[in-house]
């Protein structure tokens, strides 16, 4: 299948990446060549094959649901672009 410009703009919207109009053409060309390459997989019949779920052949470990750190609010906020009174600050969401 081929991806057109509108589809790519839609996917970019889903991925929350603004795409410069001037770059849409080259992006469309690149993504189509990548998908052409990827679609070689369609040659293979995989109807009877199970999808891989773990390469370790082991299930994930479970642990007790308990707090093992905490009281690190300062550390968590340390890299935030904008904070106020121990909260992350974002642009206005509701009017």
């Amino acid at each position: 299948m081929s991806l057109d410009k509108e589809k790519i703009k839609h996917v970019a919207k889903l991925a929350r990446i603004s795409v410069n109009e001037a770059k849409v053409d080259s992006l469309t060309k690149d993504l189509n060549s990548i998908f052409k390459f990827i679609e070689q997989l369609n040659e293979l019949n995989t109807d009877k094959v199970e999808p891989l779920t773990s390469i370790l052949n082991q299930s994930l470990r479970s642990r007790k649901d308990e707090i093992n750190d905490g009281k690190i609010r300062e550390k968590i906020l340390k890299n935030s672009p904008k904070e106020s009174e121990e909260f992350f600050v974002v642009p206005k969401v509701v009017e």
């Binding site: 997989l41 369609n42 293979l44 995989t46 094959v49 199970e50 999808p51 891989l52």
Partner: peptide, 9 residues
């Protein structure tokens, strides 16, 4: 899903 099947192969 297709890719994860081929990955198994």
């Amino acid at each position: 899903l297709k890719a994860q099947k081929v990955r198994n192969l």
